[in-house]
Amino acid sequence: MGQDRAAVSGRLVWIVAAAIFLIDQLSKFFVVHWLGLSQRLAIDVFPPYLNFRMAWNYGINFGLLSGDAPATRWILISVAVGIVLFVLVWMRRDPPGRWGLISAGMLIGGAVGNVVDRLLYGAVADFLNMSCCGIDNPFAFNVADIAIFAGALGLALFPGSGAKGKKAP
């Protein structure tokens, strides 16, 4: 019975991860290449609430650790792969409930999406820009960034039971 639960848990994580990865990569292809944002640099969609602004992110969030150095690129790829492996081991050792598994899939799918960008372009393609209420947001992000944030938050809110190996009374 335990292996059946583990298989279902593993499938849910991978289904969510694959869905996030596909949505991320398709949205980037559509906006950056098909709409030509990489050449146009800006497209007003529903200003000021939603705009597309091309930003090649060589670092992590908000440009931290940015630099066009190949070493930085490979370090960030290694960190992302390490986080994915850590989450996979965590999910296997102490599978959380459904929401935790979905959160793990979101984090993994987003991380892999950004790793693919770094491999293809040397940087992550960020394009979503949102502003509101007189605040002009200078930063851009992508679907993978949203999934990573939501996945990490979900894993904090819905961790594993911590009861692996304990018998129910």
Rank of each mutant, 00 (worst) to 15 (best):
R98E: 11
R98K: 15
W99N: 04
W99P: 02
W99M: 09
W99Y: 12
W99V: 03
W99R: 08
G100L: 11
G100R: 09
G100W: 10
L101S: 08
L101E: 09
I102E: 07
I102G: 04
I102T: 08
S103R: 03
S103V: 01
A104F: 00
G105Y: 09
G105A: 14
G105T: 12
G105V: 13
G105H: 15
M106W: 01
M106R: 01
M106E: 06
L107W: 01
I108N: 09
I108G: 08
I108K: 09
G109H: 04
G109I: 01
G109R: 03
G110E: 04
G110R: 12
G110N: 10
G110Y: 04
V112H: 06
V112K: 04
G113W: 14
G113R: 14
G113F: 14
G113L: 15
G113T: 13
N114C: 10
N114M: 11
V115A: 10
V115E: 06
V115I: 14
V115N: 07
V116L: 13
V116T: 11
V116H: 04
D117G: 03
D117H: 01
R118F: 13
R118A: 09
R118W: 13
R118V: 08
L119K: 02
L120H: 01
L120F: 02
L120Y: 01
Y121I: 00
Y121A: 05
G122H: 05
G122A: 01
G122S: 03
G122T: 02
G122K: 05
A123N: 07
V124Y: 08
V124D: 12
A125D: 07
A125Y: 01
A125P: 05
A125H: 06
D126N: 08
D126W: 07
D126L: 11
F127Y: 15
F127E: 14
F127N: 12
L128S: 00
L128E: 00
L128P: 00
L128I: 04
N129W: 00
N129E: 02
M130E: 00
M130N: 02
M130Y: 00
S131P: 10
S131C: 10
C132Q: 02
C133A: 11
C133E: 06
C133Q: 07
C133S: 10
G134M: 05
G134A: 03
G134Y: 01
I135C: 02
I135V: 10
I135K: 04
N137V: 01
N137Y: 00
P138K: 10
P138G: 11
F139E: 15
F139G: 14
F139L: 15
A140G: 11
A140W: 09
A140Q: 12
F141M: 14
F141S: 15
F141N: 15
F141W: 13
N142W: 06
N142C: 07
N142T: 05
N142K: 04
V143M: 15
V143Q: 12
V143N: 12
V143Y: 12
A144Y: 11
A144W: 09
D145G: 14
D145N: 13
D145Y: 12
D145I: 06
I146N: 11
I146C: 15
I146S: 15
A147T: 13
A147W: 13
I148F: 03
I148C: 08
